[in-house]
Structure formats: structure tokens, C-alpha cells
Design a binder for these strands. Structure first.
Lengths: 236, 236
DNA sequence: CGATTTTTTAATGTATACAAGTTGTATTTT
DNA sequence: AAAATACAACTTGTATACATTAAAAAATCG
């Protein structure tokens, strides 16, 4: 394994991305240039270039004369998220069904194998990263440069929302994840068959499952209440 | 007017953006760090940070050990463009109708005034930039961080496509532009009234107008041909 | 004693020098 | 003469030193 400057730069990039997706670096955290530059054997110049790139992709926020911060996530953005996600992902999957190559389909199957392995024996972080990888491949398949920027931005908060709400190991969440895994399998089948309509429908189903799970977590008592209208409230 | 490093940095950013949107810097052009750094009184370090940022926003492509390039535009991307644009812009305008503030509505009206002025007496570049500004404000109004990355990416190529296909001063294009201006007025009205459905419909109409205009330009003979099926062909 | 100003400290932003890589050209070899 | 190779000029990537700005601490004044 090489250890030149370029390798260290990509290592830093991947480390930051994974840390942010898994919430090891929490939203709003400050990043210390000196510390990171020391830890990865890079001077501040290439480090700051990595910051700028990650900021462009939505991982970080840069403020002049202040330290870089992990992009915030407020509960008001949940609404924006579940409005945009099904729409963008529906289009992405539709295009994936149109354009996926044999190689990409194999990559997707590998990603799904890894996801299943993470479900059986992995940590929450493993699950989040494996799931992220699966969806990332579908994005590559679509090949639409105009949709990918938003799609990749969505995937960042998808992972972070997952880490927030799928953490406790309850039965309902376990059921939910196995359902998600089944949907992944169906997505693969639809893409392999080139069935655009099915792919688009599966996208909607997949995000509805996520949304339902989160609503269940945010307002668990709503189930017992007699048809009560339960607005989104900020959890502890 | 200040002339500190920060000002020169934003000046460079704006210069590059405008140059790329108006095709003064053509797709695929190489950028010379030394020359730009000299021209704007900046050292290469902040200049390269600007490059990284613009690459993140979709203006530039960075390749290791090679010069930065203006993002390419192939004719195969027209299809991707007109698939993504109505969808994303429909959502953006719907949200704009929901969330626009008084201040933003005033900004939008100003942008539309500037656009009309550019139609009367401005150059093609003026029109493209003024139109870009109008749509940019609608993006700000939506306030949805998940849709904005793709929307802003779309606006880049919207301006460039406009510069490509709206250049010759024919009657049909003149008619088309005044129609676009009328649609802008209707968009403002829908947003001001908070009419989401109307806003979404106008988004679709607006992009259909663009698409029709381009098809007219790409295959002008199709009109005379008796029901001929005219596939997109590469113009000279 | 509290508020405000000054001083100190530490971080970010920029410039420059140097290292590594790429491209074009000329020379050599077949 | 064509291809391959070696060299030179130039471009990009990185490190470090310096400048600038913000935050923190200390000192002064009301």
C-alpha cells in the first residue's frame, strides 16, 4: 500500500466522510486543522483543499476566519428531506433501470451482500455505511449529472438520520431493517430487468418505510392514541 | 470599494462564474493558474481554493496534475437536462410559493425588471445572466438544501444552453423570449399569491418552452416535413 | 465590584519556496 | 524516415513562513 501525499489526502477524505456519515463527528462539530494535519501527515494546504471539496459536497460548512464545521441537521429539515428524497430517488432509480451496466449491477449485488452481512453481525455504523454504499451505486447507475448533486446530498443526511433513529436494537427496528433489505433485493431485480416503473415505485416505498420508522420513533405513543394528530416534536 | 484579498477572491469567483455561464469561457477550456493569479492579484493558494469550490458547484472539473477545465457539455446531456429540470424546478417553485418572504419577492421583481431591460437593450450575455439571476432567487426562496445542489447545477447549463441556442436574433426567438418574460411575471404572481399548484404548472410550462425552442433550433426543417420523425442530431 | 478597554494568545488566510509530475522537443536508434 | 528515448521547460502539488483576524485573558477605569 502506497503512502504518498495523494494517498494520505484520499485517506483523510474518506475518514472525514465516514466519520460524518456515522455521526462520530456530530453535526455542528468544529474541525481542527492543526490536529488533522498532524494526524494524517499533511500540511494545511492540501488539508484545506479537502475541506473545500467536502464543503461543496455538503459534508462541511466553511465560515471565513472560523473553523470548518460539520453541516448541521435540524429537525425542521426532516420535512424538506422527505419531500425531496422520494422524488429525486424515484428519478434516479428509473434512470438506473434504463442505464445500468453489467459491471454496475454486480457492484450493486456486492453492496447488498455487504449490507446483509452488516445486518447480521455489524455495528450500527457498519449498517449505515453499507446502506450508503448501496444507494451510492444506484446513483452511479443513473449517470445523470443534474440529479446526482442533490442525490448525494440526500445520502449524507439519510445516513445520519439512520444513525439517529435506528440506533436502539428493538424488535420493530429489526423488522424494519429486514424489510429494507428485501426492498433492496427488489430494487436490484427491477434494475436488472430494466423495469423503470417498478424501480420508481420501489423508490417511493423505500422512503415511505424510512419515514414511517422515524415517525414511530419520534412519537411512539401515537399508536395508542385514538386517531390523535401527532405533530413532529423535538425528542430529548 | 475595498480591495483586500477577500474582495479579490470573490471578484475572481464572480468573474469565473459569469464567464462560464456566458460561454466566454467555453466548455472544456483549460484555466491557467499563473495567469489568473497574476490578473487578480492573488497567490495560487487562494486561487486553487476558488477552483475547488467552483468544481464542487459544477462549474469546473479538476484533474490531478492537470489544469482545471470548464465543465464539458455534450449533446447527450440535453436529454438528462430536460428530464431533471422540470421536476426539480417544479418542486423549487412549489416551495418558493410556500416560503417566499416579502424581501425575496421584492428581489425577484427586481431581477425580472433587469431581465426585461436586458431583453430590450442588452446583449445575449446580459440576458443570460439576468435570467440566471431570476431563477437563482426562486431557488433561494425554496430554502430546501436538498434540492438546491441539483437546481444550481441545472442553472449553470440552463444559461449555457441558452447562450448556445438563443444567439441568433430571429423573430421566433424574440417571440420566445417575450413569452418567457410573461411566464416570469406569472411565476411572480403565483409566488406572491402562495399558489403552489400554479407555480408547479408554470415551472413545467417554462421548461417546455425552452425545450421547444431548442428543438426548433436543432431541427428547423422538421416543421416543413410531413409528420417526419426527427431525432436529435448534432448541429454543425 | 462590574464593565470596558487593552494585551495576549491562538486560529485562520495568504504568499512564496520547493518538490513532483507532465508535456514538448531534440537526439538517438533501428 | 519512423519510433523510441532522454532531456528540458513548464505546470501542478505540497510545505512552511508570514500576515491577519477573531477569541480569550488581563488590566484599567468608572
Amino acid at each position: 500500500m502506497k503512502d504518498d501525499a495523494k494517498s494520505r489526502k484520499t485517506a483523510l477524505t474518506e475518514h472525514l466522510k465516514a466519520s460524518i456519515l456515522t455521526l462520530r463527528l456530530q453535526p455542528g462539530s468544529d474541525l481542527d486543522e492543526a490536529h488533522l494535519s498532524d494526524a494524517f501527515g499533511l500540511s494545511r494546504t492540501p488539508l484545506r483543499e479537502v475541506f473545500r471539496q467536502l464543503a461543496g459536497e455538503g459534508y462541511l460548512d466553511l465560515r471565513t476566519n472560523r473553523s470548518a464545521r460539520v453541516t448541521e441537521m435540524s429537525y425542521t429539515t426532516l420535512r424538506d428531506f422527505f419531500l425531496a428524497a422520494p422524488m429525486v430517488y424515484g428519478a434516479i432509480l428509473q434512470l438506473a433501470a434504463q442505464n445500468a451496466t453489467r459491471t454496475q449491477i454486480d457492484e450493486l449485488k456486492e453492496a447488498q451482500q455487504a449490507f446483509k452481512a452488516a445486518l447480521r453481525s455489524g455495528s450500527g455504523e457498519d449498517r449505515a455505511l453499507a446502506n450508503n454504499r448501496f444507494h451510492d451505486v444506484t446513483g452511479e447507475m443513473s449517470g445523470n449529472v443534474y440529479l446526482l448533486p442533490s442525490f448525494n446530498r440526500l445520502l449524507i443526511d439519510h445516513a445520519r438520520i439512520g444513525m439517529t433513529f435506528y440506533r436502539p436494537q428493538t424488535t420493530s427496528i429489526s423488522d424494519n431493517l429486514s424489510m429494507a433489505s428485501q426492498q433492496h433485493d427488489a430494487i436490484i431485480a427491477a434494475i436488472e430487468a430494466g423495469d423503470e416503473a417498478a424501480a420508481a415505485q420501489l423508490a417511493e416505498d423505500h422512503w415511505n418505510l424510512s419515514r414511517d420508522q422515524i415517525e414511530l420513533f419520534v412519537m411512539p405513543d401515537a399508536l395508542d392514541a385514538p386517531m390523535g394528530i401527532a405533530p413532529l416534536s423535538k425528542p430529548a
